[in-house]
Each structure stands twice: as C-alpha cells, then as structure tokens.
C-alpha cells in the first residue's frame, strides 16, 4: 500500500512540470483557424449571405463553438493528460454548470415572459 502511494506521488512529480506547451506550428495553426472561424461569421452577418436569420444565427453559433474548441486545444493546450486529467475534469464540470445555468435561465425566463404577460398586452406582443 505505502509503495503504491509513493509511486503515485512520484508520478505526480514527474507530471506536474509536464504541462503541455505549444510549438510554433501549433500556435500558427490555431491562429489561422481562429482567423477563418472569426471572419466567416462576421462576413455572414454583414453581407446577409444566408437567406434566413434563423439559419445565420445557428451557423454563427456553430462557428463560435468550433472556435472555442480550437482555442482550448491550440492556445490553452487542453488535453486529457495534463495535471493527471484534473484540468479536464474541472473543465467538464464547468461546462456542465454553464450549460445548466444558461439553458435553465433562458428556458425559465422565456416561459415566465410568455405566461405572466397581462392578457390585454398579449395581442401586442410577438
């Protein structure tokens, strides 16, 4: 048992400095990707290239998600092994919390908006 813990600790020490670093090529790849992923949504909105606003909105949100992942990998060097996986665990926990907070707030408040509106104003809304 005690040898096990020692081995685990030694492993710890070995890994803590092994925080992932980028190289010139990974930074440049991340930069080029994020420029493209930024430019396309701006162009879509400014030119109105897509026929409907809903589709444009969905597409630019998809671009944002992809760009966030690109930044996480190429700039923040996220991977499943750094800090023995604890930074990934913290990230996953945070994403779960963020999704609950965002979707929950928007869902509850939009229902509140449509259900609590005084009757005489309903016709004027939406």
């Amino acid at each position: 048992m005690s040898t096990d813990t020692h081995a685990a600790h030694a492993d710890d020490h070995h890994h803590h400095d092994g925080h992932a670093h980028g190289s010139f090529s990974t930074y440049m790849l991340g930069f080029v990707l994020s420029v493209v992923l930024t430019a396309i949504p701006f162009w879509l909105v400014m030119s109105g290239a897509l026929p409907s606003k809903q589709i444009t909105a969905l597409v630019i949100m998809a671009f944002a998600v992809v760009q966030i992942v690109v930044h996480m990998i190429y700039f923040l060097h996220m991977n499943t092994t750094s800090e023995n996986g604890w930074s990934m665990m913290a990230l996953i926990f945070t994403i779960v919390m963020v999704v609950i907070a965002l979707s929950g707030s928007l869902w509850v408040m939009s229902h509140l908006n449509s259900n609590m509106m005084p009757i005489h104003q309903m016709s004027g809304m939406k």
């Binding site: 930024t38 701006f42 606003k53 909105a57 630019i60 671009f63 966030i68």
Partner: peptide, 13 residues
C-alpha cells in the same frame, strides 16, 4: 468569442 457572437453578431441579426 462568446461576446462577439452572442452580443454583437446575434444582436445585429
């Protein structure tokens, strides 16, 4: 990224 997408781009849309 979240700010320019959700506040600016979606706001203008």
């Amino acid at each position: 990224i979240g700010v320019f997408t959700f506040v600016y781009l979606l706001g203008v849309l």
